[in-house]
Design a protein around this nucleic acid. Structure first.
Length: 553
RNA sequence: GCGCCCAUAGCUCAAUCGGAUAGAGCAUUGGAUUUCUAAUCCAAAGGCUGGGGGUUCGAUUCCCUCUGGGCGCGCCA
């Protein structure tokens, strides 16, 4: 028995052992075990003979020939041969597949026990929108990527903190406070201009109205620092709670909401400045305080403290990340929209200057989102206030579609969200395809309890010997490998693609083989067990995606 | 001008850290249900992977270049 171990890993180990036997060093060879493009080629294939040819000082096929007897001797291997330019193609034994399936059927957790070094304390920071307005659809993409990644990391044994960093100390907050103040004055007939760069959205007026309700005319004509601080606090709280409500509507919960202001209060900001100054990386120019980023390999020096005395976002964000390091995370990931990519090299320069170890700070960039409706791309401008909010999107297409759609696209691809398509709630929607597969299986067991009450889970597996049976089991058994891929590439769309294909194979299987046939109870038991395992994986996968999994549709 | 990302079927996207004959869904055409959920399945058609060069056993993938698009390049965040 292998316990819960992906067949890829089983083969990888076997191949590595064979290499050693031939006097080669497997660790020096970047070979892979993959599923071949066409089923006739076998269950799995490896490029090891081609990759190892140089080290072995043999032609790929010659090395392959030398490995064949060793590989054939592996207990899991039924057949192995050399094909094409030197691929080793494997067919694994039925017994191995049955064992795999049985382990999965009984497994509590669908992934192997994590190695101790896997239990890293990591942090994912995402969304982190300033509390100056509602979340946009772009934040939605980020929220889904971050939340799903966090879930997968967790599943694989990492100690994950989901974090939302919000700016409650910067210049934007002053503008926010002043904007609300202006709207408030307007309610009493006093006209003031919205400041340059201020906020015009309807939600600003709403906050002003709330203040009018609670404090009546108390602040009319008053713009002392205390009054503005009150407006700031009120607006911030109102917007943060509305943002949290939006996130709730997507079932996204953060472990920590981290305040920018706290970095000033606990001295992190001044500590960072001291540390940088000690290294002669800080200087004064034109009334501002600068960071010598150029000395750290970044292009141009950057301002830390403006000539008006206020810290820049960059400065506090350095403190934010230094604080993360102090908080004991081993690795942190920031998920940023592509419009923030210019920030990366600066931040890396700062981390280097503060002697934060390389590899601690990581950025996961995702490309922008645009919306299409009625065949036309909707032009959105946050500044002009004519953007589609995430709340609106969720209301249009629902939580499941919102999450699935954002998760199914490679983060490096600019995503055009077709609202009409997602809204149609038809079979175009891949979410339903997956949910339907799950509901179908549930229905199967409903029926089985009537017509085939003697069914026992994990019996009759030895009758699963057809090509389709083997492919289904292989697909199911690859689930842990897929989660590994998600984490290695920070690519959540690998998971949606996999689940979609799993559902597709199941639908195919369903249409070709009967599951419940009391006259063939052994075969039926085997197939039902297969269906049970499929359901287990779909449930788990949709759970990681945060997509619901109804039992009937 | 400099930097990051992208360009794949009519449309939206995949392609396992360089692998074998580039795959799905939608749309189009034609089929499948007296039997476990037809929100399903089967089949057909659809491509010089934006152009050109290079690296090697092998390139959608890596390098160079050109074209086209998105996003940055602030004492905003």
């Amino acid at each position: 028995m292998h316990g819960l171990m992906s067949p890829k890993d089983v083969l990888y180990r076997g191949i590595a052992a064979s290499l050693k036997e031939l006097g080669l060093d497997p660790d020096a060879l970047a070979f892979h075990v993959e599923t071949p493009p066409r089923p006739e080629m076998g269950d799995f294939s490896s490029n090891v003979a081609m990759v190892g040819a140089r080290q072995a000082k043999k032609a790929p096929r010659a090395l392959g020939e030398a490995m064949l007897p060793l590989l054939h001797a592996l207990p899991e291997v039924e057949r192995v041969c050399i094909e094409g330019p030197g691929f080793l193609n494997f067919v694994l034994s039925d017994a191995f597949y049955h064992e795999q399936l049985e382990v999965i059927l009984h497994a509590q957790e669908l992934v192997p026990e994590p190695m101790p070094e896997r239990r890293q304390k990591i942090q994912l920071e995402f969304v982190s929108a300033n509390p100056t307005g509602p979340l946009t659809v772009g934040h939605g993409r980020q929220a889904v990527i971050g939340d799903v990644l966090a879930s997968v990391y967790q599943r694989l044994g990492f100690d994950v903190t989901r974090e939302y960093y919000f700016n409650d100390a910067g210049k934007q907050m002053q503008l926010l406070a002043r904007s609300v103040w202006v709207r408030y004055q307007e309610l009493f007939g006093h006209e003031h201009p919205i400041p340059e760069g201020g906020y015009h959205g309807e939600y600003i007026t709403e906050i002003a109205r709330n203040i009018q309700q609670s404090h009546a005319q108390q602040f009319v004509g008053e713009d002392t620092p205390e009054v503005l601080a009150f407006f700031l606090e009120t607006a911030k709280n109102a917007l943060l709670s509305s943002i949290q409500k939006t996130l709730e509507a997507m079932s996204i919960r953060f472990d920590v909401f981290f305040s920018e202001r706290s970095l000033f209060e606990d001295g992190t900001v001044s500590l960072v400045q001291e540390l940088l100054a000690k290294k002669d990386l800080v200087y004064q120019k034109e009334g501002a305080t600068w960071f010598r980023a150029s000395a750290m390999g970044d292009g141009e020096d950057k301002v830390l403290i403006r000539s008006d005395g206020g810290p820049t976002y960059f400065f506090t964000d350095i403190a934010n990340h230094y604080k993360k390091y102090q908080r004991g995370f081993e690795k942190v990931y920031d998920i940023w929209g592509a419009d923030h990519h210019g920030h990366i090299s600066r931040m890396e320069a700062a981390m280097k200057a503060l002697e934060v170890p390389e590899g601690f700070f990581n950025v996961i960039l995702h490309q922008m989102v645009s919306l299409k409706q009625g065949g036309e791309i909707m032009k959105m401008s946050t500044r002009a206030g004519n953007f589609v909010t995430l709340d609106e999107l969720i209301a249009w297409v629902g939580q499941d579609a919102t999450r699935y759609f954002f998760a199914m696209i490679d983060k490096d691809t600019h995503f055009t969200f077709d609202i009409d398509l997602a809204q149609s709630r038809s079979m175009d929607n891949p979410v339903y395809y997956l949910q339907y597969a799950h509901a179908r299986i549930c229905s199967l067991f409903e029926k089985a309890s009537e017509k085939f009450p003697e069914f026992q889970l994990a019996s009759g597996l030895s009758h699963l010997t057809g090509q389709e049976d083997r492919q289904m089991i292989r697909m199911i058994a690859l689930y842990p490998s897929v989660l590994e891929e998600v984490v290695q590439n920070n690519a959540v769309h690998r998971l949606t693609n996999y689940l979609f294909e799993l559902a597709s194979r199941f639908h195919h299987y369903y249409n070709h083989f009967p599951f419940i046939d009391p006259s063939q109870s052994e075969v039926s038991s085997g197939r039902l067990s297969l269906a049970w395992a499929t359901r287990k994986i779909i449930r788990d996968g949709l759970g990681l995606l945060g997509v619901s999994c109804p039992e009937t549709m």
